[in-house]
Nucleic acid binder design. Structure first.
Lengths: 301, 301
DNA sequence: CCTGCTTGATACCTTTAAGGTATTGCCAAT
DNA sequence: ATTGGCAATACCTTAAAGGTATCAAGCAGG
């Protein structure tokens, strides 16, 4: 049995006349007659009663007509859905985000992607950097968002933005009134750092900045992420250096003040990472959205 | 797109290796490679990622695999169901019965057919003789049960049984004690006859019998069917001649007594009728059941 | 680092089967 | 009895599926 035969059968059933159906199918009458005969032979069922005016469906033929229509529509659907999946318009995309990374950039990107590709189901996973890399290699996720990535041979990354550093201060502290804080002013002050876990990390950037400025750093506490760090500032544990994008977070008694007098490379990147040899259309579509977001960000600045 | 290609695709997806799949399909590897390429070209979607160890499905391919399995199983089902319909094991059979014909013979036959062909949906219609013939010609029904048929050019019939005549009597009537009633004893007695409507009919048989025996008949009432006639006997309206198979009907105060001293042709047939050129497997199956029933009936007698 | 093995891809030929033209046979309406 | 419309048949042409031989690429073992 053949899809062509099914199509032919439906045409004949609808026209109730082989010659007319042949015209509709842009073939001549004899081959159509033969195809119908073949179909009947194969099924061992008479599908049509031949009359003087044409043909008419037997009861078995009537049943087969319904089934045939179902088959054809299922095939059509399958083609369309597969094509959409091939263009990345349909499917499931597993995305990893890091602890406090759910601030504004990532939700924005996800929102854009969701509106551009409404057929794609986005599944979020909270993962640390190391977990993301393992999950990428095992294909449990397709993209991860992260910061400060060491280059890896099998993993590519796209930088989305670079955050400058800011200082989280309690608003009753004397420095809280200044428009800009110099690193020197934080010498020996208690500093909360984050995150715990795999290096290189935001901690390393902060230490490097202190070191290069020749300022001694007094780490009062190491916590898991920016949110916890800022919470500790609010609790009076000292200062906390954060990437500027984390400053959207509002906590009672906490002010964010830009850090001045730093070298240009004193920034943290936000990047998304993915397997180098993942050529899935879903990933490409997602990266396209990321790039579009990035270029809009640059045009604003 | 082609069912063959879908089958090939599923095999390759399952084996994750074109060569192995080719072996499974009893073809050589190159044509299989080409068919997969063609399928990908047509869908404009890459279905497989070619690796060193074989091939692996892309996400679009994964989706298409699911759809393909659905399509194949639907096709299989369609073939099987159509074949069953072709053998008369599946479908719908519209059957007409006459007013009081729902006694024991017809339910028996229908019950047998139902157990032999459980996939067939029997739809009953109450129809007079004339209605049955019109409905047969319009193909609204496939079989009708009836009595005393005049032969028609386009309609065939099968006689199921021949009923002798019986008399329905009130049990307080003097004749009710006799084991056999002679027609002479009914002379001038009030007789209820049925049915109303198209001739030739059961009435005609009854009148003929009286006439041939030289007995004058006194029709007290003409009613629609046997059930009504017997009800009138119960109400004291007189006697009623009925086909013996109607004697299964029990009404208060009514006895059935055989009619004696009649010629052999004083019988009513129960027949089923159908279009001469209806060769549907459903009808053949039904008629086969009818014949089987008939021959069992004859063996008993 | 090279060699051999496995895998899919290509080139070219053979065979199967689908499509076309011409014609026949059948039934029905005139 | 005749004609018109329909499906079926016979015979040929063409397209496409399958086969054999061979190639190119990637990985494993020496």
């Amino acid at each position: 049995m053949d899809i062509r035969q099914i199509r032919y059968f439906v045409a004949v059933a609808e026209e109730r006349n082989i010659g007319r159906a042949a015209k509709r199918l842009f073939i001549s009458q004899p081959p159509l007659t033969r195809q119908i005969q073949q179909l009947e032979d194969e099924l061992q069922v008479k599908l049509f009663e031949r009359t003087a005016k044409g043909v008419e469906l037997t009861s078995a033929g009537q049943l087969f007509l319904n089934e045939s229509r179902n088959i054809l529509s299922l095939i059509e659907q399958a083609q369309e859905r597969t094509q959409r999946a091939g263009k990345g318009q349909l499917g499931r995309l597993d995305v990893a985000i890091f602890g406090s990374g759910i601030l504004n950039t990532i939700p924005d990107i996800l929102k854009r992607f969701k509106t551009a590709y409404p057929g794609v189901n986005i599944v979020l996973h909270q993962m640390s950097k190391a977990e993301q890399i393992e999950a990428l290699r095992q294909k449990r996720i397709s993209v991860g968002f992260n910061r400060l990535l060491a280059p890896l041979p099998d993993i590519d990354s796209t930088m989305i933005l670079q955050d400058k550093l800011m200082v989280a201060v309690r608003d009753d502290h004397p420095l809280a009134t200044k428009p800009l804080i110099n690193l020197k002013e934080l010498e020996n002050e208690p500093i909360v750092v984050f995150p715990k876990g795999a290096r290189p990390n935001f901690v390393d950037l902060v230490s490097r900045v202190f070191q290069e400025a020749g300022v001694t750093m007094n780490i009062s506490q190491t916590v898991i992420d920016a949110v916890t760090g800022i919470a500790l500032v609010s609790g009076g544990f000292g200062f906390c250096l954060i990437p500027s994008s984390a400053s959207v977070l509002q906590l009672p008694g906490v002010k964010y003040i830009p850090l001045g007098g730093l070298p240009d490379n004193a920034t943290v990147d936000l990047s998304c990472i993915y397997l180098k040899d993942d050529h899935s259309p879903l990933l490409s579509a997602f990266l396209a959205v990321v790039h579009e977001y990035k270029s809009q960000l640059n045009n604003q600045a």
